[in-house]
Amino acid sequence: MGRNLVIQTDFGLSDGAVSAMYGVALSVDSKLRVFDLTHDIPQYNIWEGSYRLYQTLPYWPEETVFISVVDPGVGTARLSVVVKTVNNQYIVTPDNGTLTHIKKDIGIKEARIIDEKTNRLPRSGESYTFHGRDVYAYTGARLASNTITFEEVGAPVDVNDIVELTKPEAYIEEDIVYGNIDILDIRFGNLWTNISRELFQEINVAHGDAFEVTIANNRQQVYKNIMTYRHSFAEIRLGEPLLYVNSLDNLGVAINQGSFANAYHVETGPHWQIIIRKAPKIS
């Protein structure tokens, strides 16, 4: 197995939690290459943890081991698992919905429950509140360093039993596209939807076309306006909104050099819906 270990948490970097996970990993094998995916997942936001894995995994080599710790149920009966994706990558994580996007959009071949009798940091005491260090970093490092095989993680579990969050699918009805705001391009405040470029093109779109865009939270409208579909931000005036294709080949919504999310108080998740229909072209 390769020596790449990629860690994601909602811990932030203001204390030593992430550093402790690094230390555990390097104590298992000092030759491991340890990388950060992000540690800025909003606290307890399993949905965002799931999406960031989906956003990142396809660009890493086979055999890379990912650790994802967004774990509001730490110390409860929720399972700790390692899964093997269809692209031969591994994810070490609580089974709490973090694998939703991977399971639905990439694919999981096998899953195993972490046996904490053998795959728990020695001398970690009776603490049940830092599985990121004591179970996930330790198990992930042992797997990435070939100290254990995937089979030695623990007993197999049916992939169909892996916990999933509610994940609506985008669709078209009477030439109107319905989707969801899955995530933010956080630093810039752009909205990333679950509407694929291919689905959007089914309503016969062209760059420069105008669309009526409605955004609702739990069916309560929070935004409605006309905007154009463009290749990039620079094709419109500063401060104007646009539709565009993001880096995952899905439809995005943005303000040129502004934060759409901040301007209209838009958040993310399965309750945030976007509705797009053609409008007369803006001259």
Rank of each mutant, 00 (worst) to 15 (best):
K31W: 12
A25H: 01
R197Q: 14
D175V: 02
N225Y: 02
R78Q: 09
H265E: 10
N45Q: 00
H231D: 13
I274V: 14
T76L: 08
G140A: 04
V6Y: 07
D182R: 02
P156W: 05
L5G: 13
F130Y: 15
E240T: 04
H101S: 03
L32N: 06
A144M: 09
T100D: 14
E235I: 07
V92L: 10
E267F: 13
P122I: 11
A206R: 11
F188W: 14
H39S: 03
P122W: 10
I195R: 06
E212C: 05
Y136N: 12
P241Q: 08
D71G: 10
R78L: 13
R120G: 00
T93W: 11
G132K: 07
T193H: 10
G23P: 05
I203A: 05
T56W: 14
L26M: 10
I148Q: 03
E63P: 03
Y244W: 08
P42W: 07
Y51F: 00
R219M: 00
L99G: 10
F11L: 05
Y136G: 12
L37F: 05
E63Y: 03
I282N: 11
Q220R: 06
D158N: 12
A254F: 13
D29M: 05
V6D: 04
V92N: 08
T76M: 09
S14I: 11
G179N: 02
I255N: 08
G97C: 03
I67E: 10
I102G: 02
V6I: 04
A254Q: 14
T147W: 14
S145F: 11
S232N: 13
L13Y: 01
Y54M: 13
F11Q: 02
G154Y: 07
L251Q: 00
Q221S: 11
S127A: 14
T149C: 11
E174H: 05
N119A: 04
H131F: 15
N146H: 07
F11E: 04
G16M: 12
A155C: 02
